[in-house]
Amino acid sequence: MNESELYSIGDVARRTGLSVSAIRYYADEGVVAPTGVTDGGFRQYDVHAIAQLELVRTLRELGAGLGEIRRVLTAQATLHDLAVTHLRLVEGQLGQLRARRAVLRAVVRQNTTTEHVSLLHKLVSMSDDERDRLINQFWDFVTDGLDVHPGYVERLHNQRPHLPEEPSSEQLEAWIELAEIVQDEEFRAALRDFFRRGVGSEKGKLLASPEMMARVEQHLKLRSEARASQQAGVAADSPQARDIAERVAADSAELVAAMTGKHDLDKARRGIAEFDRSEKEPQWLAKAPGLKLLTRYLRLVATINGTPKPDPDRAAAIREWMAAALRSQA
């Protein structure tokens, strides 16, 4: 466009995408005045005014008011300041929309009652302190009367969600579900019974001791090495895979011996080598519903925290890899 040329209001409307009435309105409100007026009373605009009108249209679409736009155009406020203000507004609106979507999805999924909708909205609107208090109450109930080392109880309490400042819809939905189950009396009671049965015996207390927990962490690191190798594409029949699988078997035998006093390397090797993904759920897992509840809790916490979730298929693939590694020596 020619900088010295003046354009009719119809041309300006076509160039900016604004209606003629909108351009007149902005002129009447003192936002963008016409550059000139013809003898016949027709308004005309130069390229500078057209650029201002294009900015007005953009800012209006972003939610800016006329007063704010006028201050920007008259240099009483900077575009940066206006953007900062509206960015905060938009981010706040996005947070509210994510929370509403999470509640609505929960309503659709659960076919909930009108009373329950209010509860769901309250859950997503909780402050950090309120969420912490809810989780503390849950673990206080679950671990009440648990006769184990305090360090074990502390580890349980540390398994908690940390909802980020800008959670995704998935994180909000996971928080809603988690907040509901930690207040469910049956869930709380079943999990408390699971821990009392699990660590109530002498063997359980030994397993919950700091020394044994450190020993378990050592074993988990070894299994993490197996997972890293399997995911890196190390062949199951390679010497590296066999070495890792043998070390996992040996460490498993030593871990069991530390808990039971019985060391059986052959049994540990068979336990790895005979793994079959197609088998039904192990009997010990079917008899431990509390473990399923704990896994559900941990999966939700992982979703909220944005950390890797327990993945049965991935775990099975790693076990298959180690089984193949041990069988390749036969």
Rank of each mutant, 00 (worst) to 15 (best):
N2M: 07
E3I: 11
L6F: 13
L6C: 04
L6G: 09
Y7H: 15
I9A: 08
V12W: 04
G17C: 00
S19M: 08
V20R: 15
S21I: 01
A22H: 08
Y26M: 00
Y26C: 06
A27T: 03
A27K: 06
E29G: 01
V31Y: 00
V32L: 01
T38Q: 10
D39T: 11
G40L: 01
V47R: 10
H48Y: 03
A49M: 04
I50Y: 05
L53F: 05
L53G: 02
L55T: 09
L59K: 06
R60T: 05
E61C: 02
E61M: 08
E61S: 12
L62Q: 13
L62S: 04
G67W: 05
T74V: 01
V84H: 06
T85F: 00
H86G: 06
R88K: 07
V90P: 01
G92T: 11
L97R: 15
A102I: 06
L104V: 14
Q110Y: 01
E115D: 15
H116M: 09
L119D: 14
L119A: 13
L120V: 08
K122H: 15
L123V: 10
V124W: 09
E130T: 05
E130A: 13
R131F: 02
R133I: 01
W139P: 07
T143C: 10
T143F: 03
D144Y: 11
D144F: 03
G145L: 01
D147V: 06
H149Y: 07
P150M: 06
P150Y: 03
V153N: 04
R155E: 14
R155P: 00
N158E: 12
N158A: 15
N158Q: 07
L163Q: 09
E165L: 14
P167W: 06
W175N: 01
I181D: 03
F187Y: 10
L191A: 06
R192N: 13
R197N: 13
K205D: 00
L206C: 07
P210W: 08
A214Q: 14
V216F: 10
L222H: 12
R223S: 13
E225N: 13
R227C: 05
Q231K: 13
G233T: 07
A235E: 07
P239D: 14
I244N: 08
V248C: 12
A250P: 06
S252R: 13
A253Y: 09
A253T: 12
A257P: 02
A257E: 11
M259G: 06
M259Q: 07
T260S: 11
G261E: 02
K262I: 11
D264H: 02
K267N: 04
R270N: 02
R277I: 01
P282K: 06
Q283R: 13
A286F: 00
A286E: 14
K287I: 00
K287H: 14
G290S: 09
G290D: 08
L293A: 07
L294E: 10
R296I: 07
L298M: 11
R299V: 07
L300S: 02
V301Q: 00
A302V: 02
P308E: 12
P312E: 15
P312C: 13
I318R: 01
W321A: 09
W321K: 04
M322K: 10
M322Y: 05
A323P: 05
A323R: 11
A324M: 04
A324R: 13
L326G: 09
